[in-house]
Design a binder for these strands. Structure first.
Lengths: 196, 196
DNA sequence: TACATTATATGCGGTACCGCATAAAAATAG
DNA sequence: CTATTTTTATGCGGTACCGCATATAATGTA
């Protein structure tokens, strides 16, 4: 493929996406403004619109970027160690992300900012559901391989509860929970999830 | 207390609160407009401001109204029946509320609309945390009384996971989960939470 | 009946926001 | 060098929203 025809992009698409992710992570879809993203990146709004579409489309791309990073972390859970070690490692990696950010803890971009939009926007509702299902399936995969649990254990049921613990961590982190409280939940969740 | 001095209220405060709750439940704080609430109730905006303060104050009152209704439902969990029956009954009562609404499922007003505001507004972050803690404590009370579980079981740890299941139900309902999926989660959660 | 008090109704001011339209700029292709 | 294509920059239009200020109405009190 040769060089593109017209005037080249003057901005870095990845940089804009990261700025958008930060803005939406802090304020959600309704609370964030394209003006702020445009100013933060030095890109004019019409350029954003041409490259990414409208505000909602940019938001959904930012969510996808975030989810992709989460899924990369989830692969560390692929069964290298024991079930409880893998679960703990994944929860801790997630919390690491949830508690990052200079301006305080922000939880999960998807779980903490999509639900509020999910009633008015079918598109976002479907995307949110896709995120939830993906988390369920990631845990399901891990539980299916868990030989620590007897054959009578329902891997699917465990996965639903494991997802719930993750969502809870996401919410609590954003609500300002301490690391100590977070750790207690991780321990309680893993302990219960690994019962025979 | 005698009658108040000046001109009497021409609107029903409770009716306004319910309209506010509906609006915020659907759209969240940023997405809902005072204009819409004013129009829906026939009350002019300045009257709302005089009676309830600004938008955020009205939102927090609507959340308090909702949480109060939830807590009333939680008291049904006071230990009348077995642990698993009480947990199931409470989850089902909550889900009943989460899946109500003509325009589709809305989940929990607090869990689904407060987090997005919790980064920018310390007031809402604290209020959200208070809701979470209240849920934790409600479950904690119930687990402390559960004699089905041995004395070695950590009631506090169980409560943290039980809360997580509730939050998960709230999120999934808003994401459009089916009643079947919701039921599976309740069953999986209760089953695990009642393990010895 | 006159006054004080509270609530209501209307309207203004300012801000922020999104989307689009138009014109200029920067690159490639012929 | 000209034409074409794509991006950029500026600006306009319209909408929605919140908060406040002012004037009016309705009630209790003297």
């Amino acid at each position: 493929m040769g060089k593109p025809r017209g005037r080249p992009r003057a901005f870095d698409e990845r940089q804009v996406m990261e700025a958008a992710r930060e803005a939406f992570w802090d304020k959600g879809l309704a609370g964030a403004s394209l003006d702020a993203i445009a100013e933060a990146t030095g890109v004019a709004r019409p350029s954003l619109a041409a490259a990414f579409g409208d505000k909602r489309a940019l938001y959904l791309r930012a969510v996808a970027l975030f989810v992709g990073q989460m899924q990369a972390a989830a692969k560390r859970m692929a069964g290298a160690k024991s079930l409880s070690e893998d679960l703990t490692a994944f929860y801790e990696a997630a919390v690491e992300l949830y508690m990052s950010g200079d301006r305080g803890q922000r939880g999960c971009l998807a779980i903490c900012t999509m639900p509020v939009e999910a009633v008015e926007s079918q598109e976002i509702r479907i995307a949110l559901n896709a995120v939830i299902v993906a988390v369920d399936e990631a845990f399901h995969e891990r539980f299916k391989r868990a030989r620590e649990l007897g054959p009578g254990v329902d891997a699917r049921a465990r996965a639903l509860v494991a997802s719930s613990v993750l969502f809870s961590l996401a919410l609590r982190a954003r609500a300002g929970a301490t690391k100590r409280e977070i750790s207690q939940l991780i321990r309680a969740g893993v302990d219960l999830l690994c019962r025979k």
